Amino acid sequence: MSSVAVAEPRLVHHIPGRVRVHLPEWSRERPRDIESRLRQLRGVQGARADSVTGNVLVRFDPAATEGDAILSVLRGPSAASETSWKPPSEEGAHQPARPAVLREAHGSNGAIGRARIVVPGLDRDPDVARRVVERLQSQPEVKATANPLTGRVLVEWNRHTVDLEELLDVIAGVGLPPLPHEDAPAHPLDPEPLLQSSAETIGTAVGLGVLAARGMLGIRTPLVRSPIPVVAAGMIGVLHAFPAARVGLRNLLGPHAADMLFSAAGILSLTLASSPLGLIIGGAEALLLLTEVRSRRAAWRLYEERLGDAASAEPGAVIRLEPGER
């Protein structure tokens, strides 16, 4: 295996249990391979390599290993052989999958990060919420709030102190095993429905604009003289309504990408078929969805503002109510 760096690694930051090392020169080895080799060192709890900055962030148990052992691993396999190196079949070979994340922009100066992390089983076991919040808030300058309604944890952290990837490593494997056919509940602030409805609305508006411009110019001939666009529009509508085709494409591309593909193909075929009625119906449906999505997002943001100062409802929490509160 090739060495990780040609020049000596440089220690950037070091506190008990956490070290950040800069590699002056990167080899052809991928960041995930570097992370995997580091996780095979005894005591290493998480690792993240960033090929853009040339830094490697490592979390470890100070009682099991030390920074010198980590530096030896980063200098190359020959130096690492003198440390407590373990074969891939032992601990660290099978790392739990990292949870899905919805990142959000937060903070005027960019110092505060904000994200919603999916935790399997959060809506089934209240104790999962307690464990996740405790682990996250054990990190410096991290605030976490669990929401069983959405199955996600809202996390805010100082970007200069801790990385999101490190937080994901902290809670990896805390959630419950997924149930058969279990899906993470959709969050009201997920951007996909907003993007999909906006794109469909704009697409139908463009199609109608093209047909209207041709009408104003006195062009009566269809954009395409062939009947293929008419047949294609009908076939797309049938396939979208056919469960097997719709579900199969959603499983292949994802629900929102599949719906976007159906919508784009339908709008294009209706425009080429010179069918303003079809475009009007599709545009009205997309506009209705856009209005609903925007209303849902606004209502959820208002709900979050009302709960901003509310006491935590996690197991073991003490909630004090003032007279008149409930």
Score class of each variant (00 low, 15 high):
133 V>R: 02
6 V>P: 00
161 T>S: 12
317 A>N: 08
284 A>V: 15
130 R>W: 13
294 R>P: 01
43 G>Y: 10
124 R>K: 09
160 H>G: 10
192 E>T: 01
146 A>I: 06
224 V>K: 00
281 I>C: 07
287 L>F: 15
11 L>A: 08
234 G>A: 15
110 G>F: 03
119 V>I: 15
272 L>P: 04
225 R>F: 07
278 G>L: 09
189 L>R: 00
99 P>A: 09
224 V>L: 12
281 I>P: 02
252 L>I: 07
283 G>P: 07
283 G>I: 06
268 L>N: 01
303 Y>R: 15
305 E>H: 11
197 S>P: 00
279 L>T: 02
181 H>E: 05
316 G>S: 09
86 K>H: 12
148 P>D: 07
102 L>W: 03
316 G>L: 05
97 A>V: 04
14 H>K: 03
317 A>G: 04
253 L>P: 12
165 E>A: 12
1 M>A: 14
133 V>H: 01
321 L>G: 03
270 L>M: 11
114 R>F: 09
161 T>Q: 08
172 A>N: 10
289 L>P: 00
219 I>W: 10
91 E>G: 09
280 I>L: 15
23 L>R: 06
243 P>H: 02
174 V>F: 02
236 I>C: 05
173 G>S: 05
234 G>R: 13
63 A>D: 11
184 A>K: 01
91 E>R: 15
61 D>T: 14
130 R>T: 02
252 L>H: 08
275 S>L: 13
4 V>M: 11
182 E>T: 01
119 V>R: 02
257 A>G: 05
272 L>C: 08
53 T>F: 05
124 R>Q: 13
41 L>K: 00
65 T>P: 11
156 E>L: 08
117 I>F: 04
325 E>M: 13
163 D>Q: 14
62 P>N: 12
25 E>T: 12
23 L>P: 02
283 G>Y: 04
263 S>I: 03
184 A>T: 08
249 L>V: 13
313 A>E: 11
263 S>N: 07
92 G>L: 13
171 I>H: 02
178 P>W: 08
